[in-house]
């Protein structure tokens, strides 16, 4: 019998990018609404999205955030930080500068009340390794987001796996993003390309077919798509817009999350849409992504992450509420079915 899992639901404020960008909700409003709608208790944020004084968050801004989180009955779970190596396009900063840049963000994370940062693979294993002493002094865990177009067998991710094996720090680990193990291109994106950008159906068919071609790597799929469009005389801007699908959603096998299970620090339930009947995302098989973690009795926080703002002006709150209903059925089917009167 599998050990009982301890997966706690939450949300990333990234899901509410539309509301924040539209200035209908400020940060305090987003946090309060998250609590009011019961979308926590876990609350994740992106440093450079939510905090004006990032990467060096002031005590005043940190205090306001902590107070708002507490008042809403939420818990700060994870803060997204960035690996800004190219502060001038085409010119890389040194590893030493990038270590210092991460250190500023990690200290800000601590001031804000987070004990986990989500870092980007562009940091490099050498930079993250150099930050372990700081992580220890801050008691701060550091999770590499495994995000499309990379998956577990990509050389970049393998480099981190090797470094983690060498360092053996419990503070280092992974944050699987379920969008790295998707089953289809989101139809909401296809509809956006067709209806808002005027993409011809033949172009969309080509892009979709290539996305499913497992004989090609993601960069090769993108290159093949660019070649096809060049031959067909397609507007380069449209080609660039559609090429998004090769970068932000991947074809990984969700069963393979079990390979890194002991080092998983946090989960990202990325999604784009919810079926009105089942609340299931047609593009990302959330059940298949979650199954290895349920089976292993994994303990930790899961953030719902709606990325529909790329193609829609819709409400992140409505989408997250729908996905969490679906997740509750996956995580606790007996209780949920009893509550629904369907036992």
């Amino acid at each position: 019998m599998s050990p009982a899992h301890g997966i706690r639901l939450g949300v990333s404020l990234y899901s509410f990018t539309n509301e924040f960008f539209a200035r209908s909700h400020d940060l305090k409003d987003l946090i309060a609404e998250t609590g009011r709608l019961g979308l926590g208790p876990g609350l994740e944020a992106v440093g450079f999205q939510s905090f004006r004084s990032f990467p060096d968050v002031t005590d005043a801004e940190a205090g306001q955030f902590r107070d708002a989180v507490q008042a809403a009955g939420l818990t700060a779970t994870c803060l997204g930080i960035t690996a800004d190596r190219f502060l001038r396009p085409g010119q890389a900063v040194s590893d030493e500068e990038l270590v210092a840049f991460h250190a500023r963000q990690m200290r800000s994370a601590r001031r804000l009340g987070f004990s986990l940062v989500r870092f980007q693979h562009a940091a490099t294993p050498a930079v993250i390794r150099a930050l372990v002493p700081l992580a220890e002094s801050l008691d701060m865990r550091m999770g590499l987001e495994v995000h499309a177009p990379l998956f577990l067998d990509h050389p970049v991710i393998e480099g981190y796996r090797e470094m983690f094996e060498q360092v053996k720090s419990p503070l280092l680990g992974f944050i699987p993003d379920f969008g790295a193990a998707a089953r289809a291109v989101p139809q909401v994106q296809i509809a956006h390309f067709r209806e808002d950008l005027g993409a011809p159906q033949a172009v969309l068919d080509c892009a979709t077919e290539l996305w499913h071609d497992d004989a090609l790597t993601p960069p090769d799929r993108m290159a093949a798509f660019a070649d096809w469009c060049a031959d067909a005389g397609i507007d380069p801007q449209l080609v660039s817009d559609i090429s998004l699908i090769f970068g932000i959603i991947g074809r990984g096998n969700p069963a393979r999350w079990s390979e890194i299970m002991p080092q998983v620090l946090h989960l990202h339930a990325k999604f784009y849409d919810c079926d009105p009947e089942t609340q299931e995302d047609p593009a990302i098989d959330t059940a298949a992504n979650l199954a290895p973690f349920i089976a292993a009795g994994w303990q930790g926080d899961l953030s719902c992450e709606w990325e529909g703002h790329i193609t829609s002006h819709g409400s992140g709150f409505e989408m997250v509420a729908a996905q969490q209903g679906y997740l509750r059925r996956l995580l606790d089917p007996d209780t949920t079915l009893a509550q629904d009167g369907r036992t």
Binding site: Y14, T17, V46, F48, F86, L87, R88
Partner: peptide, 13 residues
């Protein structure tokens, strides 16, 4: 103008 991106960016980019 609005910055058409999900997060703040340094002006140098």
């Amino acid at each position: 103008l609005r910055l058409p991106w999900y997060q703040s960016l340094p002006l140098s980019v």
